[in-house]
Nucleic acid binder design. Sequence first.
DNA 1: GACATATTGTTCCAAATGGAACAACATTGG
DNA 2: CCAATGTTGTTCCATTTGGAACAATATGTC
Lengths: 177, 177
Amino acid sequence: MLFCPTAFHGSEVTAMSDGSSDPSGSRDLTALFDTVEFPDAFRITYLGNAIINPVYDAIKRDFGLIRPEYTVLACLSHYPELTAQDVATISRQPRNTISRAVHRTLAEGYIERAPDPEDGRQARLRITPAGRALHKKAAAYMAARQEEVLAGLDAGERRTLGALLRKAAQYAAALRE
Amino acid sequence: MLFCPTAFHGSEVTAMSDGSSDPSGSRDLTALFDTVEFPDAFRITYLGNAIINPVYDAIKRDFGLIRPEYTVLACLSHYPELTAQDVATISRQPRNTISRAVHRTLAEGYIERAPDPEDGRQARLRITPAGRALHKKAAAYMAARQEEVLAGLDAGERRTLGALLRKAAQYAAALRE
DNA sequence: GACATATTGTTCCAAATGGAACAACATTGG
DNA sequence: CCAATGTTGTTCCATTTGGAACAATATGTC
C-alpha cells in the first residue's frame, strides 16, 4: 500500500492541542504534518491512504477481492483486451502478483482468458459482464471516498487541485527513470 | 504500500500513442489516467507512489532500513519522546509492526528505550544521534524525490498545490471516521 | 536451420504483513 | 481490597508480497 514516511493507512490522527495534562512534553501527534521535511509528499501520501485504504477494506469485505485482484478488473474494464504482462505494466506490480490475481478472478468468473493465436507465450484477457458489474460497484466506492476525503476544498479549489494533479501526474509518468 | 486501484508502485508508464502497429486494438497503456472513474484519487496515489517507492528502495539499499523501521525514526525525530503506541497512532500502522521495528532500530542503535516510571506497561523511546543522522539523510532522499516528481509544475503552481494539499490534508485528518 | 537472447506466465521461497490472542500492568467502580 | 475492564507491548500464525529461477515460446543473427 501507499506508505508515507510515516505510513498513514487510514486517516485518523489524534488531535490534542488543548493543552491537557501532558507528562512527556509536546504531545500533539499531528505535529508531523507541519514539521516533516517533505510536507507535500507527506500530505499526498496521507490523502492517498485516506482514500484508498478504507475502500480496499470495503472491497475485500463486500466482494472478497484483494487489491491485485481488483487491479486486474480495473485495468481490464478500460481496455477491450490485455495480456497479464500489460496489466503488470499498467499497474506497476510484479508479474507473479498479477499472475495469481488472474487465476483467482478467472476462477470467480470475473475475467476470461483465451490463448493468443499469434503468440503462444501469452493469453488475452477480457473482463466478463460479472466482472464489469463488480468493477462498477467498486469504482463507485472509490469515487465516493475520494469526494469524502477531498470535501474540505470548495468547488473552485477542487478544480484547481484536479488540474494541478493532472499536470503533475502527466509529467511524473514521463519521468520513466 | 500506497496502491492505486491499479497500484502504481513506481512511476514509469509506457507511452505509445504513436499509432504504431497494434494488433489488439487500443494499446495506449496510459489511457487509465483519463478514463478511470476517480481521476483525482488515481493521480494522488500515482504521485505518492512515484515519490515514496524509489525512496524506500534506496533507504533499504543504502541504510538497511525497511519501511516501518524508518517510520519509527521519522516519528521520533520530530518528538522528544514517544511510546511505541504513539508511533503506531501517528503512523497508523499496527502495533506489532511497530514493535518489530522498535526492536530492530534498538538493536542497530538508532533509538533508545527507557521504562516509563509512571506506567509499567509502556516504555519511552528516544532517537539517538546515530538515528537522527540517518533520518536526516533519508529525509533528504525523500525531499529530493519530491522535487523531482513535482518538477512539472512551475513555482506558482507548486505553491498553489502545496496550499491545497495542506488544506485538504487538514480536513481529512479531522474526518476520523 | 541452429544457436544465442528475450519475453510470457508460472512456481518457489524467503520476507513482510496484520489480525488475534496473550501476559503484564493500570484504572475504575464496588 | 477486589473484581471487571482497558491499555501496552509482544508473540503466534495465516496470508500476502515480490525477487529469482524456470519452462515454453518467440525473435534475431549467422
